[in-house]
């Protein structure tokens, strides 16, 4: 079979494009360090979250120098913390979210960012993000979870380090 020169060029370019796609995704995984959220977070009894060492009092915990753990329970139709009081984390820190659900499947999305996971009853979704400067983010549920799903939202506040430390010593975190 004789293939026209232009057609060879186009076939080569199309193959190059596929190689390019794979290369960029590989770069994302290796160079930029983008991770997938998997089941490493382990499981939890959704009926007895009040007996869990952390989910019994969900919120922000300091886990290391400039590293914080945030435990969030999603339930119909709020994030705890997040909805009635904002999640407060210090700027320029590494934050690991541990998200689970007390009832049905919810979503946990920090609006406008790639911090986004499903909140599954019985499963802890764990993911780590690097937080930049002070900013206020919205939180929302992006999995239909019931009649008031559209109203299920919250707030996450990235506050300056000194302000965070001041409030932490004052008792709130």
């Amino acid at each position: 079979m004789e293939i026209h020169a232009y057609e060879k060029f186009w076939l080569g370019a199309a193959l190059l494009l596929i190689v390019g796609f794979i290369a960029t995704v590989s770069y994302g995984a290796i160079g930029a360090g983008v991770e997938m959220i998997d089941d490493d977070g382990g499981t939890v009894d959704p009926q007895n979250l009040d007996q869990h060492p952390k989910f019994s009092d969900p919120g922000v915990y300091k886990s290391g120098p400039n590293e914080y753990d945030v435990y969030v329970i999603a339930k119909q139709f709020l994030f705890q913390p997040g909805t009635s009081e904002p999640i407060r984390v210090p700027a320029n820190s590494t934050v690991t979210f541990h998200v689970t659900s007390a009832d049905v499947i919810h979503g946990f999305e920090v609006v406008g960012t790639n911090a986004n996971t499903m909140a599954i009853p019985g499963q802890i979704s764990t993911f780590t993000v690097e937080v930049d400067g002070p900013q206020e983010y919205g939180l929302l549920c992006n999995e239909y979870c019931g009649s008031a799903h559209h109203a299920m939202e919250g707030t996450m506040k990235v506050v300056p380090e000194d302000e965070f430390n001041a409030s932490a010593t004052a008792g709130g975190a």
Binding site: T24, V34, T113, N114, A115, F127
Partner: peptide, 23 residues
């Protein structure tokens, strides 16, 4: 157009979106 759109989508819209899951 494909190449430019891919580069824009991945590097600007996705990686530039702040707070990416890294662990």
């Amino acid at each position: 157009i494909l190449v430019v759109m891919w580069v824009f989508m991945y590097f600007v819209e996705f990686l530039g979106r702040g707070m990416t899951v890294i662990g």
